[in-house]
Design a protein around this nucleic acid. Structure first.
Length: 923
DNA sequence: TTTAGGCAATAGGCTCCGTTCTT
DNA sequence: AAGAACGGAGCCTATTGCCT
């Protein structure tokens, strides 16, 4: 037996080889070309193998109006003709259909009582399937409309499913033909106990072994669970070099960062700082070394070190996030290839799992085309999101959650494509009615076999489903399996050391099971892009979920003795305030409530206690924050924010910092005055230029040059166009987050916000001209965010900074936009070094006259000294990271606060030194 | 090639309408 | 006194990113 781990697959078309392939079709024509599936991966000894699988043909199915064999042949002929006609200049004799067979299957789409006869049409070329499906549906074949089935399943996946193969698992076969290699002509000892023969076909890959295999020789058994945790197959990924991982794209979906530069990822994942040198600097170092070895050697070492750090950094990121293991686990469980876990969407995953199950039960899936999707009835239901009773709560608020609500509903009510009878009001009418994106007939005979009371579940939106004793739906069966497995995995995890590899693997398994359970609903209602959407199914799930939630709300309202009041809820969650309880009491009350609520619902629908917010803010729908407690004895609450600016990435760090600190202060002290003082202090720091620029960087996703409305004032777009002008390659990638800050535009009189955008390069290049638009940041970013929370208790935060702005406001009341005014107002202000009053000179006039000269000089000296010391300290920190004395100057990272702080301190130090000079001269 | 819709929020354009300035 | 200019309210669209 030979076994090969399936790491990567592809397919190609090749002329017939009589040694492996059929040469004559049963449809009585000679075969010219056949499809071959290739599988790459290591065998059990770790040798790289390339398999060529013969004898597999892609296929689709159509319902048969008759079961005459003759009819099938006509159908094949007519289809060939239609395809040839559709290629205008094609040879009209080309054969596309390899074979056609009659099979009996159960359509999954809508309830069908009995098996239906289908023609299974096999083709030579996988890429012809789409076209054939379109032609069949369009009525171009035999003057009749055929609804294609399973045409949307990609060839390789179809093969995986039919032969029970899973990505990253083994494919087994007992007979193979080795392709000869000039390098290892004699070394066949490993294969001596196997039934291999030498193939005449030349090799095409660089793999050590290359086999031709016929499909009939595959002997895969059901997968062995628990095997394959240590994973030698993974080595092959790197050796073969066939899978290219775009780490940036992976990280983008894996972790939430403000900006996905290498340096920032390293910092957030590995908690290390690394420098960033501009590519032009690197090439300068590289070239200099050649020209002037003695001078450049130091630079050259940095260059090598830099390259090393970067390459190793990528691996360390992969390792730290356990990406390879995780992705392999996903591949095994979903049964798809390794790379497809990363590159393809979740529909593909659902399909792999669902169609496998469906095939076991002789179900067949339908393939709708775009037009059919388009004409599907629009959904009528949306999830329930309550308008929150917005307030700041200092009494406990409990959060209850329905556990996997959508999957539970699917299971509880046996909701599936295959159990759906369609709309109840259409049932009494005879004939074809619209169903999802195709149509369905439920005959009188079928109906009369069903007892309307006991055999049918009618959803609140008027869709009927047969109950489980009549027909078990595919979706509920699949979900039950998935969730039961997940429970099993989680139980095993409890027994295992948390640091072990096994634990990580199991964790990946349970995570991937959870993901698939959640997207199953999405698959049924993906109306615009879905591969097999069905509005009836999707709508029912949503509507039932709605009624489930409404019922809970109603129960709480009508049972006031629980002491709770619903203040908010979204889709499957409920926020319940206990106005007269302590935290401990609220825990008890909510547990009682959960118990009572669970009596209302059929299994497995279950509501669960999640947490208690003690001190919380419900700002608006999908926006709230609070100090959360998950267990009674928890000492310290956890700051838990949803949807507000502290978790959003479309503002800058300063906003989330100030908001978070303010809220914490408010929660701890319940004293608005303290919050006010804090905010005023922070705003003053910004206005007087004492801040770290890092906190003021916006970084938003760039969608790509052509993906914007022509007039859209998007900073990322403006920057991208600007960059592309000098170097087309410098245009940001699609999805890249482009950093910028808001300053002033002194050239334009009527500047819009977008005209005030500065890239960081520009800021550092024209340091003296750049002034942070502090008014914008305060008035348009920081205060509105605070206002949304604090306005709930009647605080006007905008008034807080009035006196801070008074002296600038009294200036010329120019016409123009707010921004325009700010240009005139934003004279760099400073404080008198002695009395700390705001002035325009380093020393205010009063102090100059009154204070003792020597004292002033001491103050000056101390200040300058202090800054010089700070500067030296920061430089040392920088040295530790870059290993260069001039590191802070050369490094161009935008993710390091130390670098910005150093720039800042340098400036302050120079200012202080100037002040010192000023005082010496003046006095 | 592609799970979904809901939601809040910012920026900026446009129109309407009342107020203020200019001739 | 008539007309122009201004500025705010209200509405719309585009864009972004989070929630379940």
């Amino acid at each position: 037996m030979i076994s090969v781990r399936i790491v990567l697959t592809d397919h190609y078309i090749t002329p017939v080889n009589s040694q492996f392939d059929p040469v004559y079709s049963k449809l009585r024509h000679p075969i010219k070309q056949v499809p071959i599936i290739r599988i790459f991966g290591p065998n059990e000894e770790g040798k790289k193998v390339c398999l060529h699988l013969h004898g597999i043909f892609p296929y689709l199915l159509v319902k048969s109006p008759t079961d005459e064999i003759r009819y099938g042949e006509q159908l094949a002929q007519s289809l060939d003709m239609a395809i040839n006609l559709s290629f205008e200049k094609g040879n009209t004799d080309t054969k596309h259909v390899h074979d056609i067979n009659l099979v009996e299957l159960l359509p999954i789409y809508g309830y069908h009582e009995k098996m239906v006869k289908f023609w299974k049409i096999e083709f030579y070329n996988p890429s012809i399937i789409r076209k054939a499906a379109d032609l069949l549906l369009a009525g171009a074949v035999m003057n009749q409309e055929f609804q294609p089935h399973e045409a949307h399943v990609p060839f390789n996946l179809q093969f995986f499913i039919d032969y029970n193969l899973y990505g990253m698992n083994f494919i087994l076969f007992n007979n193979a033909c080795e392709r000869n290699s000039s390098q290892i002509t004699t070394n066949l000892s490993t294969a001596s106990n196997q039934t291999t023969t030498i193939s005449s076909v030349p090799r095409v890959s660089s793999c050590e072994l290359e086999y031709d295999v016929h499909i009939d020789d595959i002997c895969n058994k059901p997968p062995q669970i628990g095997k394959g945790i240590a994973n030698p197959g993974l080595q092959a990924l790197w050796n073969v070099g066939r899978i290219l991982l775009d780490l940036w794209r992976i990280l983008r979906s894996e972790i939430t960062l403000n900006i996905y530069t290498f340096e920032n990822a390293i910092y957030h994942v590995l908690h290390e700082r690394v420098p960033h040198y501009d590519i032009s600097l690197l090439s300068k170092w590289f070239i200099d070394e050649g020209l002037n070895p003695s001078f450049g050697l130091r630079d050259f070492v940095t260059l090598l070190d830099y390259g090393w750090t970067h390459s190793m950094g990528n691996f360390r990121l992969l390792y730290e996030l356990d990406l390879i293991n995780k992705t392999s686990e996903f591949a095994r469980i979903y049964g798809i290839e390794f790379y497809h876990v990363l590159s393809r969407g979740s529909q593909y995953r659902v399909e792999s799992m669902m169609i496998r199950l469906a095939k076991c039960l002789h179900f067949i899936t339908v393939t709708p085309d775009n037009r059919q999707r388009l004409y599907m009835r629009a959904p009528e239901c949306i999830p329930l999101t309550l308008e929150p009773i917005s307030n700041i709560y200092f009494t406990p608020v409990a959060v209850l959650d329905f556990q996997s609500l959508y999957p539970s509903i699917i299971m509880a009510y046996n909701i599936c494509y295959s159990t759906c009878l369609g709309r109840i009001d259409q049932l009494d009418k005879q004939g074809l009615f619209k169903f999802g994106c195709t149509s369905l007939t439920i005959s009188d005979k079928v109906l009369s076999n069903l007892n309307l009371d006991t055999d049918i579940f009618c959803s609140p939106n008027g869709i009927a489903f047969v109950k489980r004793h009549i027909r078990r739906g595919i979706l509920p069966v699949m979900l039950e399996e998935i969730l039961a497995t997940r429970v099993m995995v989680k139980n095993t995890m409890k027994l295992i050391d948390k640091k072990s590899t096994l634990y990580k693997t199991l964790d990946a398994r349970q995570l991937c099971l959870k993901l698939i359970a959640n997207v199953t609903f999405g698959y049924t209602s993906a109306s615009f892009s879905g591969r097999m959407p069905c509005v009836e199914v999707g709508d029912t799930i949503v509507h039932t979920a709605r009624t489930v939630l409404e019922r809970a709300i109603d129960f709480i309202r009508t049972n006031p003795h629980f002491g709770g009041r619903v203040v908010y809820g979204d889709t499957d969650s409920l926020f319940i305030q206990f106005p007269h309880s302590t935290r401990a009491q609220a825990f008890e009350q909510s547990h009682l409530l959960v118990k009572a609520l669970n009596q209302l619902y059929p299994s497995p629908i279950k509501i669960k206690f999640e947490k208690i917010y003690m001190q919380s803010v419900l700002a608006s729908k999908k926006r709230y924050v609070g100090m959360s407690y998950e267990i009674v004895d928890q000492k310290q609450g956890k700051f838990d924010a949803k949807g507000i600016e502290t978790v959003r990435r479309d503002t800058c760090l300063i906003v989330s910092k100030i908001l978070q600190q303010s809220l914490k202060l408010l929660f701890q002290t319940k004293d608005v005055t303290r919050v006010r003082r804090y905010v005023q202090f922070e705003c003053e720091k910004i206005l007087t230029n004492r801040f770290n620029l890092l906190d003021f960087i916006f970084a938003k996703e760039y969608r790509g040059k052509t993906r914007y409305h022509p007039s859209a004032p998007v900073p990322a777009l403006r920057i991208a166009i600007e960059r592309a002008k000098t170097n087309p390659l410098a245009e940001p990638n699609q999805g890249e987050r482009v950093p910028y800050v808001i300053g002033f535009n002194t050239e334009l009189l009527n500047a819009n916000l977008i005209d005030c955008v500065w890239t960081l390069d520009k800021v550092l290049q024209y340091k003296s001209q750049f002034k942070l638009n502090s008014i914008y940041y305060i008035k348009k970013q920081i205060l509105p965010a605070l206002d949304r929370c604090l306005a709930l208790i009647g605080v006007n935060v905008f008034k807080w900074i009035d006196n801070l702005l008074i002296d600038v406001n009294s200036n010329d009341k120019q016409q123009g936009s707010v921004l325009d005014e700010n240009i005139h107002r934003n004279t760099l202000r400073q404080r008198c070094i002695v009395c700390l009053q705001l002035t325009t000179t380093p020393l205010c006039n009063e102090c100059r006259e009154e204070e003792d000269l020597s004292e002033i000089m001491i103050i000056c000296e101390t200040k300058a000294n202090k800054l010089e010391r700070q500067h030296a300290n920061l430089q040392r920190l920088c040295l530790a990271c870059s290993d260069r004395m001039d590191g802070w100057f050369q490094c161009s990272t935008i993710d390091c606060p130390i670098r910005f702080r150093l720039h800042k301190i340098t400036q302050l130090m120079l200012n202080a030194q100037e002040t010192r000079k000023f005082v010496y001269n003046e006095c």
